[in-house]
Each structure stands twice: as C-alpha cells, then as structure tokens.
C-alpha cells in the first residue's frame, strides 16, 4: 500500500481526492490546501491529516506519491520540491507553464529515479484507447493527415476580468483548453512533432485568445490541424473530435463514439468495407470506483500501478506532457500575438 499526499483539494482536487481514496494500492495519508474552512471541514469529517503548508506535510508524513492539483502557475515549484524530496508526482495538466521548466522536471525525475504522471485524462478514455490501438496496428495504413477539434463554452460573453483573461495566470484558450487537444496529437501520432503555423484569435476576451488554429507536422510526414474554441455556446460540455485519414481508410472519433471507414474489409479486426460504428457501450468501462467517468478512475489506477512498480512508465508520462508544453509554446510564439 503506497501512501499518497494530495495538494490542492478545491473543485477538481476534491474529486481526485475521493477517487484516490478509493483506488486500490493507494492510501491517502495527508491533504494540503490554502482554504482554511475547507481544511477544517475535511479534517473534522475525514480520516486524512490536513496541512496548510505542503512543505510541512512532506516533513511530517512519510509519502510515496503526491498529487499536485493547484493553480497552473504553482505546478513547477511544488512538483520540483516533491521530486527533490524523493517523492513521485502526479501533476494536473498542463505540466508546467514553460517547456524549459517541464524539461527540468523530466530530467530531475530521471536523475532521482522517480515516477511521474500528468493528468491528461483523455488518454484513459476507452474510445481514444481503441483509436490508439487501431493506429498502432496500422489498420488505417500509413497516416497522412488528421484534424483535431476541441470546442466548449467557457468564455461566452465579453469579459476582461479573471484569470482566464490573463496569460500570466495560465489563462487563454491555448493554455487552458489547448493542452488536452495538443496532448491527443502526441498520444496518437508521437512526440516527434513541430508546429508549422498558428493563429490565435480573440472573440470575447480582451487580453487572450479564444480560438486557436495550428498546423502540426509529425515525423516530417503526418500533417495535423488543431482547432480549439472555448467560446462556442452550442455545446453542452467540452468535446474533442478527431478525424484521421490514412491510406486504408478513415476514423472519426470522440469520447463516446468511433466511426471507421475502411477502403477494404479487415476481417482480423472485424471491420467491414465501408462504414463501421463503435460506441462507448461496446467497450469495457468497469472501474472499482466511479465518480466523474471511468477515465478519471483509470488514470489514478495507473498512478497506483506506477507507485507500486507494476508498470514502469505512465501512458501520460512527464516526457510526453513536456512535449505538449513545447507545442503550446511554439504555437504561441509562431502566432505573432492575438488577433
């Protein structure tokens, strides 16, 4: 049983805490937050030891792993401190705010032989995992291109206030929504990637982008187009849709469903010529504990396996997350500013 500390138990942190507390192989030993009423509440009503200073938590409690669920600007500082103290980390996405910092943490974890994972939860979605498997098995032949869309309704009215309208606080569609979308690009098509061109556009925000458009090139042969829009009020919740074109067919997928067009039948994979349809209900979605979807439960099951040594690397590793940060930075730099 590995002992876990959770830093940041606000909205998303509280869900992570509940899930971690029900994950096999992990025991939540301590929590840390800056909100005094929340801490008092949890200290009184749960079995977790509560701290308002993470350094004190690390000094006082013997921990094998720490979840870092704090605002993005503090990811680097806190994750670095944990790694320096010899503790493996799970960091919410994005890994850090710069590629340089992310690289530093990747090197630090390697030098200290510690484990790390970043909260790219899409990698644990059963449909996206199915897509990954199909791509790895070359079911679509040689991949030529893809388009990767993420849309949602976060900033749907004129606003000049709040962290979302401030790059220095991790705001903007590129840095808030973007990580999930760009991470899917590396999950499916690999980390040998560069940004060829990008445009950042504002709709309602005044200081940051609301729409991101970027062209990516993987291995100098797969061209990708990422379109991200957080100002689309027509969608009920954030959704990712990816369309992948290869020499043997095409895939269109989101978190719930997968359409595959095959130029010829593939009997080994039970795919007929023409359109094939798969749904989330066709996949195994069993989890030991469910709160916000099986993806969230499974990403923590994986962190438990990492801590317990049953796997050596997460499918959402510090390295792949650092490449996502690299792409975000390139997208920002190539854009020439918000239009």
């Amino acid at each position: 049983m590995k002992k876990l500390g959770v830093i940041g138990v606000g909205k998303m942190g509280l869900s992570h805490l509940a899930i971690a507390n029900q994950t096999v192989g992990i025991e939540v030993a301590a929590i840390c937050d800056t909100s005094k009423p929340l801490l008092r509440f949890l200290e009184k009503n749960t079995k977790f030891r509560a701290f308002s200073d993470y350094k004190k938590m690390i000094d006082d409690v013997q921990l094998d792993g720490i979840m870092v669920n704090v605002p993005n600007t503090f990811h680097f500082e806190i994750a670095k401190y944990c790694l320096e103290k010899g503790i493996s980390v799970f960091v919410e996405k994005p890994f850090t705010l710069t590629y340089k910092e992310s690289q530093e943490l990747v090197e630090l974890a390697k030098a200290k032989n510690l484990k790390g994972q970043v909260g790219y939860v899409n990698r644990f979605n059963p449909i996206f995992q199915r897509v990954k498997k199909l791509l790895d098995e070359k079911v679509l032949g040689e991949i030529a291109s893809y388009s990767n869309r993420m849309v949602g309704g976060v900033v749907i009215a004129e606003s000049s206030k709040g962290w979302r309208n401030d790059y220095s606080k991790g705001g903007g569609c590129l840095f808030d929504y973007g990580p999930h979308c760009f991470d899917l690009s590396t999950y499916f098509f690999g980390t040998d990637v560069r940004i060829v061109s990008s445009v950042l556009k504002k709709v309602f925000s005044t200081m940051v982008d609301d729409i991101v458009s970027a062209t990516l090139l993987h291995d100098d042969k797969i061209v990708g187009y990422n379109y991200i829009n957080w100002s689309d009020n027509s969608v009920r919740k954030a959704s990712n849709t990816i369309e992948i074109f290869g020499s043997k067919g095409k895939i269109i997928a989101n978190k719930q469903e997968l359409s595959i067009y095959m130029n010829e039948a593939d009997e080994g994979n039970n795919l007929q010529k023409g359109w094939n349809q798969l749904y989330i209900t066709d996949e195994n979605t069993d989890v030991n504990y469910y709160l916000r979807g099986e993806d969230f439960s499974r990403q923590l099951e994986e962190f438990s396996q990492l801590l317990n040594g049953t796997i050596s690397e997460s499918r959402s590793s510090l390295y792949s997350a650092s490449i996502t940060d690299k792409m975000l930075e390139e997208t920002f730099n190539l854009s020439g500013g918000v239009r």
Binding site: L17, A18, N21, N45, L291
Partner: peptide, 12 residues
C-alpha cells in the same frame, strides 16, 4: 449520484 458517490469516496 455525483453527491452520493463523492460522499462515498471521501468516507463521509
């Protein structure tokens, strides 16, 4: 269920 399951998860 989001509340029931959160309470279960936290042990409340």
């Amino acid at each position: 269920n989001i509340v029931t399951d959160l309470l279960i998860g936290l042990g409340l």
